[in-house]
Structure formats: structure tokens, C-alpha cells
Design a protein around this nucleic acid. Structure first.
Lengths: 256, 256
DNA sequence: ATCACTCTGTACGTTAACGCACATAAGTAC
DNA sequence: GTACTTATGTGCGTTAACGTACAGAGTGAT
């Protein structure tokens, strides 16, 4: 029974860990620590030093900024496709944003020291992390664009779809209040919009649970932002086998 | 006379190039090519392959996304504090955004191959580029936040200040139409807001030229976003002498 | 000096989203 | 089952920004 549960929690459920070669994976695997990531847990505060990087497998985490007046805005989300703590290897060791779990679950974490030792070998791990970071940049960029130009309905659909892509089922467990604070809009705005989507048969919901009934219907209600982000993640991280090949095209040939 | 002009165009006017050690600078310096970067020039189209990275010295470039309906939104700006073409070393070789010059001037460029050879040495150049990329991420994040929550006046002030920080004088050469398209708002909104700022004695302007009269006055009219971005650039890139020291704290000690 | 063009100013109705107030409903604890 | 808490629904009036239309002013070309 324990074995059955354990087998359902495999580091390879995180796409980045799954993309590592056997050799590198074997190197870090003894250091991977399975951790619970319950709803509301804050992985990093703005300005806090990073002790670990986290690879979610079932949890989803929001990167957001909290303003002086208390309002917040999500900058990007991270699920089993990504990693939390990029500021570690980017060199700053902290960020101005905050990371908090909004869909409870599990993940694996790695001590900062272990991550940096592998990153500094300047091999596949480094290339994978940098590629992921670029995909994350695209997500952030598109969030900025979407915040500027698109309606609450379009943004809600985008957000539901991006979240759904990180989950195994078609049910999200979260209140409208939580969604509203992620998107940085009023709770009533979500109530109204979600009501419309339900009336059109695209979703159904009850107190803290949203079920997506018509995925492609949602896609037709969202803006282009969803597909831009999705395609860029696919382009950058789907053919992970090619990462070394592509990266070494420009490899340095002469030592100094 | 030519010497005088040339001396005013020194690679070290770009902060990143200035932060390189003599050894690395000497290595790439023969490959640095001075180029004019006139208003409106497009350095990269969305999806286009990168042939060079650009280090502006007097030009300022906007990273922005153009939507299907033609509207646009700026994601970040890059001047003499930065570099264009991070997608090269991040591994994607292209981005979903576009880069166009909005303040004409000059810069230095480096062929992609030369940049990658130096980057792949995994030394100071790499650390510097990654740190800069993290600062850029902060700028993008804050743009997303600002787009969500702040007024056109606050955003205009933030934008003017960030642009001013990249210029030698207190005069910006640009039309209200251009500013509006960068911020993704109506031209009339800028006319109205700029009029207010002028009436309060913070700026003065005439057809395509804006002069900032009261810098700290502008700062008090903007949102926190300006200082967040400014401080983060300072934190990450001011003490460049420390970059190696900090980065090597986690250095790998044993070869595989 | 005149013309053409582009930039800036102003006005007006429209709209999406906001802030607030409160009602109702669905779970949870006892 | 009842009381309590939390989530959701709805109805306002308010507001910032929008879209459109057009007038005036600056600048450069001939």
C-alpha cells in the first residue's frame, strides 16, 4: 500500500526532472526530498534568501507581487512543468515577488547547494533551467499584455486553462475569492463571469470546486495569450533531447 | 575631430560591457561593432532568429508584444544598462516579443557565435548576462503589476523616469502618440495626463520633446513600481565586482 | 508666404470594471 | 438539527479609461 502511494509520487512526474539524463538524474536523485506543499504555503517571501529549489509534481504555485496597499497581482504560475527558485542560479538569490501554493499537493525539493553544484557544471541541467526560465519569461510577458488589454472573462479563461494544463483531472479546487486575488480583480467580477461560463455549459462549479466541461469552448472564450504561452513552453521544452545538440552549436572550442 | 567623436562612443558606456574584466573585454573587444540604432529600427521580430546581441550606449529599445488586432503593449525597455537578445543564451534563440528602437542612438553589437563562445566559458560573462536577465524579469513582472493596478498617470511617470535613467540629459525626444503606443493606452490619455504634469510644473513639452523639470516631483506621482525596478537593477548589477565571489560560493568542487 | 502634414487639445457619449452593501446558500462544528 | 462560518449572488452608484470626432497649433517643404 505504501509502495503504491510512493509509486504515484515519482520525481519524473515533474517535466524538468524527467528531462534529465540518467547520469545527471542519478547524481541528484539521492538529494531529492519529497515534500508536501499545502494550500497557502509560502515558499519564498519577497526578498527572502532561497534555501531550496522546488519541483512541483501535483502542487501549483503562484508567483505574485503584493503591493504596498495590500492588493496583489499574479505574475506567473508554476506547476509540474517547472521549477521554483530560478533566482538562485540567475545570481540574485532572491526576487521582488513571492511564491505561494494555490493548489495543494506535493513536490520535490533540492538544497540550494546541490542545485548550484550541478548547475555550475554548465551541462544539461544548466541548459534546461535556462530554457525553462525563458519560457517563464514568456508567461510573464503575456501576463503583462493580458493585464493591459483583455477582459476579465478572457483572463479568467486563460487562467483556468493554464491551471488545468498542470492538473491530472478537469476539476480545480479553489474559491472564486482566491481566483480573484490571483488575477488582481474583484471577487464579484469572477462570480459574474463564472456564472456566464456556467450558463453556457463551459464549466460547472459549487463552493470551491470548478469542473471544466468544455475545454475547447473555454479556449474560444480566451485571448491569444493562452496559446502564445502554451506554444512557447512546447517549443522550448518538448524536445528536451535536442537541448544539448542545439546548445553546443555555439560551443567554445578553444580554451583561453 | 573624428577622435573626439569616437571617444564619445566607447563600449564602456554600456554598463554591462563596462562590468567585464580586462581579460574578457579584450577577448571580445575586436568583435564589437559600433552600429547606428535609428528610431523605429526593428532589431528582432517576434519569432525571428537572433544573429547578434546588442549593447545600446545611447539608443533605447522597447520589448513589446503586438496583438492579433494590432494593439501593442510594452513588456520592458532596454538602454545602456542592458543587452538585447537574451533569448540567444537562454536557449530559445527567439522570443514571442519584438524589439524596436524608440530613442535613436548608437550601440555595439556582437555576433551570436562570439557571444555564445564567451558565454559557454561559464565565467563572468555568463554570470553577468544571467544577473541582467533576472533584473529584466523584475522589470517585466512589475510591468504586469502596473498594468493591472495603476493609473495612466502613474504609469506615464514610471515610464518617463525609467527612460530618463537611460539618457544623459533631462530631455526625451518622442511624441505622445509614441508613448501611448508603448504603454498600450490612448493617445488622448497621454495628452491629458501630460497636460496635468505640465500645469504642475513637473515637465514641459513641445511637439515631440519632453523636458523633465522636477524629477522628484515625478517620483511622487508614480507608483512603487519605479523604485522596485530601480532598486533591483541596482542590487543585481551595481557591485559587479562581487559577481564572481557570490557565484563561486556554490561552485562545483569535484569533477564528474 | 503658403501649403501640407503631423502633432496636440478638447469635448462627448459609452463602457468595463470598481467599491460597497447586503442577501442567500452551502458547508462545518457542536 | 442548529448555529456558525464561509462562499456565492445581486444590485446599485461611481469612476477611469475608451472610441470617436474635430479643432487648433507647430514644423518643414516648396
Amino acid at each position: 500500500m505504501l509502495a503504491a502511494i510512493t509509486s504515484r509520487r515519482d520525481p519524473k512526474q515533474n517535466h524538468l526532472l524527467a528531462a534529465l539524463t540518467g547520469e545527471i538524474f542519478d547524481q541528484i536523485s539521492p538529494h531529492l526530498e519529497l515534500v508536501a506543499m499545502p494550500l497557502g504555503e509560502v515558499l519564498y517571501e519577497s526578498g527572502g534568501q532561497l534555501q531550496h529549489v522546488y519541483f512541483p509534481i501535483s502542487a501549483i504555485v503562484s508567483l505574485h507581487y503584493i503591493m504596498e496597499n495590500g492588493a496583489m497581482a499574479e505574475i506567473a504560475g508554476v506547476g509540474n512543468e517547472g521549477v521554483l527558485g530560478i533566482a538562485l542560479f540567475m545570481g540574485g538569490n532572491t526576487t521582488t515577488s513571492r511564491a505561494a501554493v494555490y493548489t495543494g499537493g506535493h513536490g520535490y525539493r533540492l538544497k540550494a547547494k546541490v542545485m548550484m553544484e550541478e548547475f555550475n557544471r554548465a551541462g544539461l541541467m544548466m541548459r534546461l533551467m535556462l530554457r525553462y526560465t525563458q519560457a517563464l519569461i514568456t508567461q510573464m510577458s503575456q501576463t503583462a499584455v493580458c493585464n493591459r488589454h483583455h477582459s476579465v472573462e478572457q483572463q479568467l479563461c486563460r487562467w483556468l486553462l493554464l491551471t488545468l494544463d498542470r492538473l491530472p483531472s478537469n476539476e480545480l479546487t479553489m474559491t472564486q475569492e482566491l481566483i480573484a486575488s490571483m488575477l488582481g480583480v474583484r471577487r464579484e467580477g469572477i462570480t459574474e463571469t463564472a456564472g456566464n461560463l456556467q450558463r453556457q455549459g463551459l464549466i460547472s462549479y459549487r463552493r470551491g470546486h470548478i469542473t471544466v466541461l468544455d475545454r475547447s469552448g473555454l479556449e474560444s472564450h480566451t485571448c491569444e495569450c493562452y496559446q502564445v504561452v502554451r506554444k512557447e513552453f512546447h517549443r522550448l521544452l518538448s524536445d528536451t533531447g535536442d537541448i544539448n545538440k542545439i546548445a553546443t552549436r555555439y560551443e567554445s572550442r578553444q580554451a583561453r
